[in-house]
């Protein structure tokens, strides 16, 4: 029986969809069977980031309304043979066409066949959020070091705690700009974690390549050397119960050849 994890944030633009795509890919790379569920009905993106947008025939609304069977709507990512699947959102519908029970039914139907079902939640705390949370066993809250994102994350954590998922929510701090954090211009990792008082699942550095690879439909995790990719891979390992130390905030500065080599050895 797999585990359903909703990826949410409250605020928009902090990287929920990017996190869903990369975490799903990272889990698939470590030989887990993963289904990504895009619930951002009307503004779907997950398919684009994964480069699967041209393969959509049926979507989640078609499944709920009986126009397609669940397995017909699942899109297989051929790069990870039989490991990564996507259930896309509908583009020409509204979030209110789905009911929480319907989403839960779909998630429950997927769970026996997959190790992980990752649910990409839309921004906001309205119907879309309620739908996304309905079927989840656990939640990952994505925030950036900005105060507005942290504030919204706090609000969302409150709602999640009230919802009473099986496991307490965990935190990913995304788009960390090391120089700003080191200069004390933004809240640092400890401050954010302490403020939100939930367990930190991992941190991801801000990197231009995240955007450029997304544009090509290739999640950044495929590029092993990239720091953001390492962040996502570490998160995937921690999700599977491994103990992985947090990445060093200074590591981005270490551009020297020898340091890079030694860091490379340390990681293994």
């Amino acid at each position: 029986m797999g585990k359903a994890i909703v990826i949410t944030s409250g605020k928009g633009g902090v990287g929920k969809t990017t996190t869903s795509a990369n975490l799903g890919t990272a889990l698939a790379l470590s030989d887990k069977k993963v289904c990504l569920l895009d619930l951002d009905i009307g503004l779907r993106n997950l398919d684009v980031i994964l480069g699967l947008d041209n393969r959509i025939i049926y979507d989640i609304v078609d499944v709920v309304q009986g126009r397609a069977k669940l397995h017909q709507a699942l899109i297989k990512d051929k790069r990870f043979d039989e490991k990564l699947f996507l259930l896309p959102a509908a583009q020409n519908a509204d979030k209110s066409v789905l009911k929480p029970e319907e989403v839960k039914d779909i998630v429950d139907e997927l769970k026996p066949d997959f190790d992980y079902v990752l649910i990409d939640c839309p921004a906001g705390i309205e119907q879309g959020f309620i739908n996304a949370v309905a079927g989840a066993d656990m939640a990952i809250v994505v925030s950036t070091p900005e105060i507005s994102a942290v504030r919204d994350a706090d609000r969302v954590i409150g709602l999640l705690e009230k919802q009473g998922l099986e496991e307490p929510p965990m935190l990913i701090i995304n788009r960390i700009r090391t120089h700003m954090m080191n200069d004390g211009e933004v809240m640092d990792v400890d401050e954010i974690t302490q403020h939100l008082s939930i367990k930190l699942l991992g941190i991801v550095f801000d990197d231009d390549q995240v955007i450029s690879t997304s544009n090509k439909g290739e999640p950044i995790v495929l590029n092993e050397k990239n720091l953001a990719a390492q962040g996502y891979r570490n998160i995937a390992r921690r999700l599977q119960g491994e103990t992985v130390p947090l990445m060093n905030l200074d590591s981005e500065k270490k551009k020297g050849f020898i340091q890079r080599i030694s860091a490379w050895f340390k990681k293994n």
């Binding site: 705690e161 403020h195 008082s197």
Partner: peptide, 25 residues
Amino acid sequence: STIRNGQVENVNGDVLFVGDLHQGG
């Protein structure tokens, strides 16, 4: 209790509070 952004904790009577009251709570 942890009172997060957007949450309201109502107490009838006096309260000795030892939890976390976040911004917006």
